[in-house]
Write a protein that binds this DNA or RNA. Sequence first.
DNA 1: ACTGGCACTCGCTACAGTCGAGTGCCAGGA
DNA 2: TCCTGGCACTCGACTGTAGCGAGTGCCAGT
Lengths: 340, 340
Amino acid sequence: MGLDDRKLAVLRAIVEDYVSTQEPVGSKALVERHQLGVSPATVRNDMAVLEEEGYIRQPHTSAGRVPTDRGYRLFVDRLSRVKPLSPAERRAIERFLVGAVDLDDVVHRTVRLLAQLTRQVAVVQYPSLARSSVRHLELVPISTTRLMLVMIADTGRVEQRLVELPGPVPADDVTDLRRLINEKLANARLSETPPLVQALVEEAPTGLRPTMTTLATVLLETLVERHEERIALAGTANLTRGGLLDFQGSLRPILEALEEEVVLLKLIGETEPSTTRVLIGDENEFDNLRAASVVSTGYGPGTTIVGGLGVLGPTRMDYPGNIATVRAVARYVGELLAQN
Amino acid sequence: MGLDDRKLAVLRAIVEDYVSTQEPVGSKALVERHQLGVSPATVRNDMAVLEEEGYIRQPHTSAGRVPTDRGYRLFVDRLSRVKPLSPAERRAIERFLVGAVDLDDVVHRTVRLLAQLTRQVAVVQYPSLARSSVRHLELVPISTTRLMLVMIADTGRVEQRLVELPGPVPADDVTDLRRLINEKLANARLSETPPLVQALVEEAPTGLRPTMTTLATVLLETLVERHEERIALAGTANLTRGGLLDFQGSLRPILEALEEEVVLLKLIGETEPSTTRVLIGDENEFDNLRAASVVSTGYGPGTTIVGGLGVLGPTRMDYPGNIATVRAVARYVGELLAQN
DNA sequence: ACTGGCACTCGCTACAGTCGAGTGCCAGGA
DNA sequence: TCCTGGCACTCGACTGTAGCGAGTGCCAGT
């Protein structure tokens, strides 16, 4: 089980070569391209050990070696340093994110930026409502029996719901309702609103009771309980790079998985600690994504986290580079959010 | 140049067979599967004529015939009747669209529904701001020097912009600004707002002048001039049906095109008359989409059109079926919008 | 412990041969 | 005049064979 330094160096070399050439790498090519200071035969012996331990494998008997998911895992954990971003990349990030007019714009720019920099599929979760606070709730009369309820979160996210009222409500009442609701809910974390909303209904003047009840129902059901998460996606065309070699020739399962918001949320949304997460191959829970890896992290203003973002690509991806980019972008987005 | 009835019948049969089998169709198979009442030899003669006229072609010398874009065009224009929807499909549409909580929800449900029914890529344009009227403009104070401007359109679409004010503005002033703006702009078509906004600035009391100017700028620049169009997409995984036969093996160009909102808007957004539009193969203006066809139509409450929706797939698609589905879905969505 | 040498494996490519679906053409018949 | 059966032909798809070469495992020697 001893993996001495040289064997690790061999594994690192295999990963790096395979990632860049996309072809199984043999012992001879390895010693030519890296300063290992030993002969191909020695490397072969090391390779045999690495294969026994499950870090690499041979596609066919007479071919070179390819890293396994386990090999990538070891590489990511112990053999790679996060690449510093080039100044050009830093500038690209700043240039790209400056001038966004609203949250939608920020998210769209971010996801395209990520896709472009990493040349992978990029995923950005909108700031989660569950982790947001209410900044303001607005009631806009649409007709006498209809209101539009607009919620503005501190993250800049805006959600609206059409509310069918039990009966006609005069303008003055709407003003009162608006005041009551905001007094009670403004600055409350959305996850802590249920008791507050309950109190709102109970404390409401009799005249406003039915309307308030309706509003409370909509508020709780569509904004709190079924906490509406949103996702932006970009760069699916990047899946076709590397011909049909990655994803063993069928994009089908990948594209299907990418259409499911639930799947994407699980992939990038569950970043508990503020660290970068790397899921390699079948480490993720979805069969459709066995051949894919995900690099993701949380983002948010300051040290809090309000959502996740990341990239998805073939297991054969540039982990150090992608990790660096994902982190950097998350940091910039966080700063941008903090400014608002 | 005479295309008698039988030749047209042969073309129709070729299109139908090729669409369902995805394989070049030969003269013998044709007479077996269709009641043409003539021998294969006769069919071959007809095929030769059809090929001369450019309606069909042979992938290789010793293969059957395949319709050309021109052949599909003739088929769509003269040889097919729009398939009536099955009751199951009608029910699916109703079931799918009931219970949408807001416009976002309507659009998302619609696009998924379309993708599912047609098994193609579905595209839905959000109700265009250019064709909407202002229902209400709300100003929400974020801090003393920041407002959030929320615009609610009659189509249910809600847009918000963060506005950096030139100086602190007291709450009473915000109330005044809100009143002034709504008095002037409520119910105005967005395309007709520029002179109204201009007037707003000119008529504003001196104290509110600078703030009003800032608001006017944001309003015009981000909501009117650069009229923000939005698009929802679903069913990209359907592109992989039919293996790699459609799109000659490379999804790349298609996926790239689908990432460009501008492209999608041109494909489905320019539906001037209220009729269904079919773009076959290179009839569309994008090189990337040479191998694709688009079926699209406009939708909106009543007879007005506020946006477009449609499906995109291989030229080898079920035109009559897709046309019927696209129309039906557009009609249902229109009714749904009319209710709000 | 590393190295050079050697036999071996096996996927890839090229090539030849066969098969068969499909065609174009033509002469004969309604 | 139009349709039909017959026939020779084309050419892609598939199969089998052979040679090549990258890469390996093993072993004896340093």
